[in-house]
Simulated scan of single mutants.
Amino acid sequence: MSTMYTQIENVESYIYMGQRYSTRNKNQDKEIQRRITAGWTAFAKHRDNFKGNI
C-alpha cells in the first residue's frame, strides 16, 4: 500500500473567500488597498456604460 503526501507551502499571506489573510502582519492596510484596487478595476471594465446620458 503506497501513501501519498501533499507538501503544503508556507506563505505570508493568502486570499480566502475574497479577503486577504496575513500570518505576519495584522495591519489591514494591504487588504483595504487590495479592495479599493479591485473596485476601481471593476468600474473601469464598465466605463463605457457610464458615459453619456442615462
Rank of each mutant, 00 (worst) to 15 (best):
K30T: 06
I36K: 01
S22L: 02
E31T: 00
Q33H: 05
K30M: 05
F43C: 12
S13M: 04
T6S: 06
Q19Y: 11
I15M: 10
I54A: 12
K30D: 12
A42F: 04
N10H: 09
F50G: 00
K26L: 10
R24H: 08
Q19E: 09
T3E: 11
A38F: 03
Q7D: 05
R47Q: 14
T41F: 07
E12A: 10
E12K: 11
N25K: 11
A42D: 09
G39A: 08
M17F: 15
I8F: 09
T6L: 13
N10C: 06
E31P: 02
I54D: 13
N53R: 10
S2G: 08
T3A: 08
R34G: 00
N10D: 14
Y5D: 06
G18I: 02
Q19P: 00
R20H: 02
N53S: 11
K45R: 15
I15D: 12
T23I: 02
Y14V: 14
N49V: 08
G18P: 00
G18T: 01
Q7G: 04
S13R: 11
Q28D: 08
R47P: 00
N10F: 05
D48F: 10
Y14S: 06
N49W: 12
E9P: 04
R35Y: 03
D48M: 14
N49H: 12
R47N: 11
Y16C: 12
K30F: 04
I15E: 13
G39R: 01
S2N: 10
Y21E: 05
Y21I: 09
T23K: 11
I54W: 15
D29V: 12
V11M: 08
K45N: 13
E31K: 00
Q7S: 03
S13D: 04
